[in-house]
Structures are given as C-alpha cells and as structure tokens.
C-alpha cells in the first residue's frame, strides 16, 4: 500500500515537472560573461611576474649557504696561500689609454652618440610611463 502511494507521488511529480520550463537569464548574459572572460585573459598577460622566480631564489640561497658552509668547514689555509701568489704587476702596468690612438672622427661620433642617447633616455621614459598609466 505504502509502495503504491509512493509510486503515485512519483508519477504525479514526474508528470508535473515534464511540463515546466527552464528559466532564462538576461539577453546579454553571454556577452557579459565573455567580456569578463576576455578581460581576465588580458589582465593575466600583463600581470607582474618577477624576473627571477621563487624557485630560482631558493636554489641560489641554498647554493650560497652550501658554499659558505663549505668555506667555514674546510679551514682557511688554502685561500690565504692563493692570495699571496697573485701577481698584481700586470694590472698596474696595464694602461690602454696610453697605447690606443683614436681618430678625431671616432671621437666626434662617440660624443655625438652619447649626447643623442642622453636626449632619448628621458623621452623614452616619458613614452613608456604614459603607455602603462593608461
């Protein structure tokens, strides 16, 4: 009897729900979703990403720590000996300005290029600043 009753309720609800229809969102629903989706996609492309990732930083730190630990652990005698044998004469006698000769044209070119570069730096900076502010 009870099972029969349940069957009847099931039939009734099945029959009623068959005729009902789905509700629809506003007509511009798809365009609203798509504009948000596209906005999200472009913002993901311009979001700041560090040049050196977290993993690289961790690797560098571990490497440094290992290096420091190694130096501290393995005594200092070897490094002292190496310093004593360095020959600094080559460095003090090396003076390229004395030996190299520049033509006047090269000098003018280098000076002019430097001046032009100095003018361009603030111009380029302004250009990129205004581009990213917008």
């Amino acid at each position: 009897m009870k099972a029969n009753e349940d069957k009847n309720i099931e039939k009734l609800i099945d029959h009623l729900m068959k005729d009902t229809t789905l509700a629809s969102p506003s007509f511009d629903f798809t365009s609203k979703v798509m504009s948000q989706v596209i906005a999200n996609k472009t913002s993901a492309a311009t979001t700041y990403q560090p040049l050196i990732s977290k993993q690289t930083f961790i690797a560098i730190f571990i490497g440094l720590a290992v290096l420091i630990a190694y130096v501290l652990w393995n005594g200092t005698a070897a490094s002292n000996n190496r310093l004593l044998h360095l020959n600094y004469n080559l460095l003090t006698n090396f003076n390229p300005i004395k030996t190299w000769q520049f033509s006047t044209i090269t000098t003018y070119t280098v000076v002019l290029t430097t001046i032009m570069l100095c003018i361009q730096i603030p111009l380029l900076k302004n250009y990129y600043d205004s581009k990213f502010e917008a």
Binding site: L22, A23, S24, P25, F29, T30, V33, M34
Partner: peptide, 21 residues
C-alpha cells in the same frame, strides 16, 4: 581561442541560471 567559450555558455546558461535560481 577564448571565443569558443561563447558556445559553451549558450549551451548551459539556462540550466546554470535555473539551478542558481
């Protein structure tokens, strides 16, 4: 091709909206 998402939105929007409602 993010624009292909339009088809999926159109396909499921009524059901998703009705469920939410």
């Amino acid at each position: 091709n993010p624009n292909a998402f339009t088809t999926l939105v159109d396909r499921y929007k009524d059901m998703v909206y009705t469920l939410a409602l």
